[in-house]
C-alpha cells in the first residue's frame, strides 16, 4: 500500500512524527476500532479516530439522535435529530475522511450479540462509550473472554474516569468494581447532568489510548485509573492492583459466560 498525494497531505502531521511515520500511519489505516455507544464519549472518540485515519470504525448504538444529545455528542448535527445515531455518525465520518470504512450495528449490546459484533471485523481495540453498568460489565467480560484490549470510561457532572485493559497486562474493570450496582443505585448522566465537554476530554483520551495501542507506542492506562475533576482541573492517575481472584480475569475465574444484568428503570428501553 502506498500513499496518494492527498493521503500524504492529510496525514502529514502524523507522518512527520518520529513515533508514527509512514509505518505508523499505515498501521492506523489497517486498524479496526469498535466504538460501543455513539454518545458523549463515543462521538468525540469516533471523530478523532476517523480524522487519524483508523481504517475501519465500528459504531454500535440502537438509539436515535435527540435534541438533548447535541450539547455534547458532537458527531451529530441538528439536522440529524430523529436519525439513528449510527447512521448520523457514519455520515459525519464519511464526510470527514473517505479513507475510513464505517460499519454500523444499530442495536444494544447484550450477551447474545456482543461476541459476534467484536468478531464481525475482528476489531483490534474496543472503546466503551456506554452509559450504563450492565453494558460496561458486559463489555469488560466480553473483552476478557475474547482477549481484546479495551478502554473503559465514565463521565458524570464535572467528573470523568478512564482505564485501559490489555489482556495479561493489568487489571480488568471487574478487578476494581466486582459487580454492577443495583439498578438506580448510582445516578446516570440523564438524572445527574454532565458538562458537555467531559465526553470530549475523556472520549479523546480513549481515542488516544486506541491510537497508542495500534502504534505500539508510549504507556497505556493499564493498571491505572485516570480520574479528572473539571472544577478543580485536577487529573490523577491511581495505580490499580491486579486482583488474583477476579471472577472473570483471575487465576480461577468463575465467569465463563456473559451475563445480562438488569438495567436502571430509566434505561429499560435499552435492555
Amino acid at each position: 500500500m502506498s500513499f496518494t498525494n492527498d493521503q500524504l497531505e492529510r496525514y502529514s502531521r502524523h507522518i512527520i512524527l518520529k513515533e508514527v511515520g509512514v509505518k505508523g500511519q499505515k498501521k492506523l489505516l489497517k486498524s479496526k476500532v469498535l466504538i460501543i455507544g455513539t454518545g458523549g464519549l463515543g462521538a468525540p472518540a469516533a471523530m478523532f479516530l476517523a480524522a487519524a485515519g483508523v481504517g475501519t470504525i465500528g459504531l454500535v448504538d440502537s438509539d436515535n439522535v435527540e435534541l438533548s444529545n447535541l450539547q455534547r455528542q458532537i458527531i451529530h448535527l441538528t439536522k440529524d435529530v430523529g436519525k439513528p445515531k449510527v447512521v448520523s455518525g457514519q455520515e459525519t465520518i464519511n464526510e470527514m475522511n473517505p479513507d475510513v470504512n464505517v460499519v454500523t450495528y444499530q442495536e444494544w449490546v447484550s450477551s447474545a450479540n456482543i461476541i459476534g459484533i467484536i468478531k464481525d471485523q475482528d476489531y483490534d481495540f474496543i472503546i466503551d462509550g456506554t452509559d450504563n453498568f450492565p453494558a460496561k460489565f458486559l463489555i469488560n467480560d466480553a473483552c476478557v473472554l475474547t482477549e481484546k484490549p479495551f478502554s473503559h470510561a465514565g463521565i458524570i457532572r464535572f467528573h470523568g474516569q478512564t482505564m485501559t485493559y490489555v489482556p495479561g497486562q493489568g487489571p480488568c474493570y471487574r478487578c476494581i468494581f466486582k459487580n454492577p450496582p443495583p439498578p438506580d443505585a448510582v445516578p446516570t448522566c440523564k438524572q445527574a447532568g454532565v458538562l458537555g465537554v467531559m465526553g470530549g476530554i475523556i472520549g479523546t483520551i480513549q481515542a488516544t489510548e486506541a491510537i497508542k495501542y495500534v502504534l505500539g507506542i508510549g504507556e497505556l492506562l493499564t493498571g491505572q485509573l485516570l480520574t479528572y475533576d473539571a472544577l478543580d482541573m485536577d487529573f490523577r492517575k491511581i495505580k490499580l492492583p491486579l486482583v488474583k481472584d477476579c471472577p472473570v480475569c483471575g487465576e480461577s475465574a468463575k465467569i465463563k459466560e456473559l451475563i445480562d444484568y438488569e438495567g436502571a428503570v430509566c434505561e429499560l428501553k435499552q435492555n
Binding site: 500513499f3 500524504l8 497531505e9 502529514s12 502531521r13 507522518i15 512527520i16 511515520g21 509512514v22 509505518k23
Partner: peptide, 14 residues
Amino acid sequence: CPITFVKAKVAIEE
C-alpha cells in the same frame, strides 16, 4: 512544507 519533508521521509522509510 511540510509535504517536502513528508515525501522525503516516505521515500527513505522504504
